[in-house]
Amino acid sequence: MKRKLLALLTLAAALPALPVLAADNSLLASPVASARSNAQAEQTIGAGISYGDAFFGDKSKWRAGLFGEANFSNGVFLSTRDGLGYRLVDNYNGFSFAASIGPSGSRRESAGDNDHSPNRLRGMGDIDTRAQINLFGNYDNGPFHVNTALRQTLGERRGTELDVTGRYDVYSTKQDLVQVSAGIGYGNKTLMGTYYGVTPAQSVTSSNAVYTPEAGIAAGSVGVMWRHALTQNWITTVGADVTRLGSEAGDSPLVGRRTSASVGGSIGYRF
């Protein structure tokens, strides 16, 4: 698996040498509704599968799930990822802004299951999904794209995170879109403590050392993605990425590995 991933990343490094072909690739634009424009009004449902390393254990895992994205010409969007939202500004000199309310992240003790050492998350308790406010800012200029997301968990948890991702179209036609990407994520002290910290009470129940991370860079990532239009309605996506935790998260006694690699694919039906 790691050799396959290395081959994909080597391909990604070589792709910028390919010519960027100008084409109307709105069919292959990001399926995430918060990153699309009112002119790209459509709905997509699909399923995806991925295989990758686990931060909280040494056992690589298969993951599968369904997704849905609905984008309407009046600015309203509905997403299994970002929730129910509205596009506040649509394509003003390449900029767009949106807001939504949706689900926050979560974590289960079973995420630490592995084959070679005790589960570090056992006794830490589950982190449940909460309501979350999201603010999005996007910029598109030809083959260049920048997507930012500021997320604020509601309730007593109050975790705040900021994600910034840059994408570049290295190959773009009406049927194919290849992108390389790089991103970075920042978390406030509450968010970092929620996912990577160990309180005195949790130390007793889990046997992990007490750890109190500060606010900082949660992780950085690089990736490559290929989207292909099988027909006007059916779209496939395959990709690979590597993510490395920042020092505050990576030094946590809960973390089994600081670097995670994954590959995956999905198929969606647009209408």
Rank of each mutant, 00 (worst) to 15 (best):
I101A: 13
M192T: 05
N71V: 07
L9R: 00
T212D: 12
S110E: 09
N141A: 13
G52S: 11
A13C: 07
D90G: 11
I133W: 08
T190S: 15
F55V: 12
N141R: 09
P213W: 07
I45T: 13
Y211M: 08
A64Q: 09
K2T: 12
L230Y: 05
V242I: 14
D126N: 14
Q152W: 10
S207A: 15
T199A: 05
A201H: 08
G246M: 05
T160Q: 12
N208L: 14
G264S: 07
H228K: 03
I49M: 15
Y211K: 08
L66I: 11
D126K: 03
N138H: 03
I217W: 06
V210R: 08
I45L: 14
F144D: 15
Q40F: 01
L78W: 07
T212A: 13
A7P: 00
T173R: 04
R122I: 07
M192H: 06
F72H: 13
K59V: 03
F136P: 02
E248F: 02
G183C: 02
A215S: 15
A209W: 03
F95D: 03
S37W: 12
P253V: 08
N38G: 12
D241S: 15
V146A: 13
T153L: 08
S79P: 06
N233P: 00
F56R: 10
P103C: 07
A209V: 10
V20F: 12
R151T: 12
N119K: 01
R258E: 15
G166E: 05
L15E: 06
G239F: 05
L154H: 01
T190I: 04
G268M: 04
I133E: 06
G264Y: 08
E69W: 00
S26H: 13
